[in-house]
C-alpha cells in the first residue's frame, strides 16, 4: 500500500487499505452486471489510480421525465448532481446537500425524495420526475399555475422542490387542513417566507380535484 501514490493519508484502517481492495470485494460481492474481471485485473495490477478511476464509473440506466438515459457515473455521485451537472437538468436545486432543505425534491417512481440523499446508482431502472417534467408541453401543471396565482415564491430557488413536494402531498392525501399541509410541507424550507401563499396554492389544487 505504501507505494500507492495517492492513497488517502488518513482513514486507511477504515477503508481496509485501499480503494482497490474495496473494488475486489464489492465486485465479487455484488456487481454481477458489471465487469468484475476488468476491475479485479485493474486492482491486481496496481494500475495508476487515474486509470482505475475510469473503471470506477459504473453504468446506470434510468428514465428522467420520460427520457431514457444510459450513463456511466461514479458511485459517489448523487442523483441531484447527476441531474444538475451531467444531464443539465438544473431545475432541481442544491440548497444544503444534506437532506435538510428540500430544494432538491424529485419524484422517484412517484414518491417524493431528497435527490441529494440518493446516490445516482441506487436509481437503476427507476422513473424520475423533476420540475422540468411536470408541465405537458406549454400547459403548466395545476400546481405550477396555482403557485403563480398565489405568489407562492419570491426568489424562486426553493420553488422546484416546493412544487414537487406539493404535487406528491396531494397524492398522499395530506391536505385535509391548512395545518396538515403546513406540517407535511415543513421539509421544504423557503427563506423568503412564502409559506402562507404556498399553503393557499396547495389548497386550491386540492379543492379543484375533489
Amino acid at each position: 500500500m505504501s507505494k500507492r501514490r495517492n492513497a488517502p493519508p488518513e482513514g486507511k484502517d477504515l477503508l481496509k487499505g485501499s480503494r482497490r481492495d474495496f473494488l475486489k470485494q464489492s465486485s465479487l460481492l455484488s456487481a454481477a452486471a458489471l465487469t468484475p474481471g476488468t476491475l479485479i485485473r485493474a486492482a491486481n495490477e496496481q494500475w495508476d489510480e487515474k486509470v482505475a478511476d475510469a473503471f470506477e464509473k459504473l453504468p446506470l440506466n434510468l428514465e428522467v421525465n420520460g427520457v431514457k438515459y444510459s450513463v456511466n457515473v461514479e458511485p459517489r455521485v448523487t442523483l441531484l448532481d447527476l441531474l444538475r451537472e451531467q444531464l443539465n437538468l438544473t431545475g432541481s436545486k442544491k440548497g444544503c446537500d444534506r437532506g435538510q432543505c428540500g430544494a432538491c425534491t424529485v419524484h422517484v417512481n412517484g414518491v417524493r425524495i431528497n435527490s441529494c440523499l440518493s446516490l445516482a446508482l441506487c436509481n437503476e431502472g427507476k422513473k424520475v420526475t423533476t420540475i422540468e417534467g411536470l408541465a405537458k408541453g406549454d400547459v403548466l401543471h395545476p400546481m405550477q399555475e396555482a403557485f403563480i396565482k398565489h405568489d407562492g415564491f419570491q426568489c424562486g430557488y426553493c420553488t422546484s422542490g416546493q412544487i414537487m413536494s406539493a404535487v406528491a402531498l396531494v397524492k398522499e392525501g395530506r391536505t385535509q387542513s391548512p395545518g396538515e399541509i403546513s406540517e407535511f410541507m415543513s421539509g421544504n424550507i423557503c427563506r423568503c417566507g412564502a409559506y402562507s401563499n404556498i399553503v393557499k396554492a396547495i389548497q386550491e389544487v386540492k379543492n379543484s380535484q375533489s
Binding site: 431545475g91 420540475i131 422540468e132 411536470l134 403557485f147 403563480i148 415564491f153
Partner: peptide, 10 residues
C-alpha cells in the same frame, strides 16, 4: 418571471 421559476427554467 413566474413561469420560469415554476418550471425550473430560471
Amino acid at each position: 418571471d413566474g413561469r420560469l421559476k415554476v418550471t425550473g427554467g430560471a
